Computed example of a mutant assay.
Amino acid sequence: MSGPIASILDSRAFGILARVLLTLVFWSSGLAKLFDFNANVAIMEGFGLTPGWLFNSMTLILQIGASLLIILNRWVWLAAGALAVFTVLTIPIAHPFWLKEGEEAFRDMTVALEHVSVIGGLALVSIVSRRR
Rank of each mutant, 00 (worst) to 15 (best):
G81D: 00
L124R: 06
G102R: 07
S126L: 07
R12G: 00
G46Y: 01
M44N: 01
G48V: 02
A32D: 14
V116A: 15
I127E: 06
S67P: 13
I61L: 15
I61R: 14
A94S: 05
L34A: 15
L69R: 08
I93E: 06
W77P: 00
L78A: 09
I119P: 00
L122G: 03
G121F: 10
I127H: 07
Q63L: 15
I16M: 10
W98F: 04
A39H: 03
A123C: 10
M58W: 09
N73E: 03
A18D: 04
L17I: 13
A18P: 05
S7A: 07
E45F: 06
F55E: 11
W27I: 05
A82D: 07
V111T: 13
S11E: 00
G3T: 01
A42L: 01
T87S: 09
W77C: 07
I93Y: 06
R19I: 04
L54R: 07
V128N: 02
I43Q: 10
L21K: 10
H115N: 15
L72C: 11
N73Y: 03
Q63V: 11
L69H: 07
L54H: 11
P51H: 06
A13G: 01
T23A: 13
M58A: 09
F37D: 13
F35D: 06
S7T: 08
A82Y: 10
N73I: 05
I70V: 15
L72F: 12
L83R: 05
L22S: 09
T23V: 13
V125E: 03
H115W: 08
L17N: 04
I43D: 08
T90M: 12
R74P: 02
L54D: 10
F37L: 14
S67M: 15
V128E: 04
T59P: 07
L34C: 13
D108T: 09
T110G: 11
N38C: 05
I91P: 04
M109H: 06
W53F: 15
M109V: 01
V116C: 12
K100R: 10
L34N: 13
F47L: 09
G121W: 11
L21Y: 13
G3F: 06
S117G: 15
G102S: 12
K33R: 14
S11W: 00
G120S: 08
A18C: 04
P4E: 05
Q63S: 13
S2T: 08
W75E: 12
A39M: 08
N73P: 03
V116F: 15
L34R: 14
V128P: 01
W98S: 01
G3L: 03
N38S: 14
A42H: 00
H115I: 05
R130I: 11
F47T: 00
S57L: 15
E45W: 10
I119T: 03
S28W: 09
A42T: 05
L122F: 10
I5H: 01
G65W: 07
H115P: 06
G65N: 10
L22A: 08
K100I: 03
M58L: 14
A13T: 12
I5T: 08
S2C: 07
G30E: 05
W77T: 09
S129N: 08
L49K: 03
V128R: 03
S11V: 00
L24E: 05
